[in-house]
């Protein structure tokens, strides 16, 4: 009799322990990371197109070793770009010290007006480590096209000159320089931070 009870108690204790372990340790690890956008599994390298920063020529492949957050915008952009850049700055705050392993890059889709200096002033206003890049028309066209980004001049009011309609996605590039994730404009700072953290490992 006592033997049976002991056996029952033992099984219950093991089951409880198992349940607690499963709930707090195993399940959170097993649960797959849910991405905020479209994942590219195959190995698509980031283009090696030469661009210009305020400190001289830069290729996106120069940032290998860091997770690169790539965005296409321009400094005269009235609404979408400031909203995205401040959201990315929020993601950096959420990541805290991990943000050292991340490089946010905005590539200009308005090389006509965006000088490297203007871009630097603009992006660092959102977060000190952000980098702004521009380049020749052909270089910008090439890198944007390969990143699934399209842009086009739209005539604005006389005061603002012109605006540029452009794809507003945010791209994540892993530490080895492979394009891995396309995030829609609507993604939250928390979601972006968690996706970046995933690729930081």
């Amino acid at each position: 009799m006592t033997d049976t009870w002991r056996r029952v108690a033992y099984v219950v204790a093991v089951a409880l322990l198992g349940a607690v372990l499963a709930w707090f340790v195993v399940l959170p690890r097993l649960r797959p990371h849910i991405f905020g956008g479209a994942v590219i599994q195959s190995n698509q390298r980031i283009p090696r197109t030469e661009l210009r920063s305020a400190d001289g020529p830069v290729r996106l492949t120069d940032f290998e070793g860091k997770v690169v957050v790539l965005y296409f915008g321009y400094t005269y952009c009235p609404d979408v770009c400031p909203a995205t850049l401040s959201k990315l700055a929020d993601s950096m705050e959420i990541l805290g010290s991990k943000a050292d392993g991340v490089q946010v890059v905005m590539v200009s889709v308005d090389p006509e007006r965006d000088t490297p200096e203007l871009l630097e002033e603009y992006v660092t206003h959102f977060y000190p480590d952000f980098i702004g890049l521009t380049g020749d028309d052909s270089a910008i066209n090439q890198i944007a096209t390969l990143c699934g980004v399209v842009y086009q001049k739209a005539e604005g009011s006389a005061a603002s000159g012109y605006t540029i309609d452009h794809t507003s996605t945010v791209l994540l590039v892993d530490k080895e320089g492979y394009l891995k994730l396309v995030l829609p404009f609507e993604g939250s700072a928390e979601q972006i931070a968690s996706d970046i953290a995933y690729f930081l490992g």
Partner: peptide, 23 residues
């Protein structure tokens, strides 16, 4: 189906002389 790579962004003109884009 595998997710092979990003489709390129494009800005083209169609048979009705209208602009069509990847967006």
């Amino acid at each position: 189906l595998p997710r092979i790579r990003l489709s390129p962004g494009y800005l083209l003109v169609n048979q009705d002389d209208q602009t069509i884009t990847s967006e």
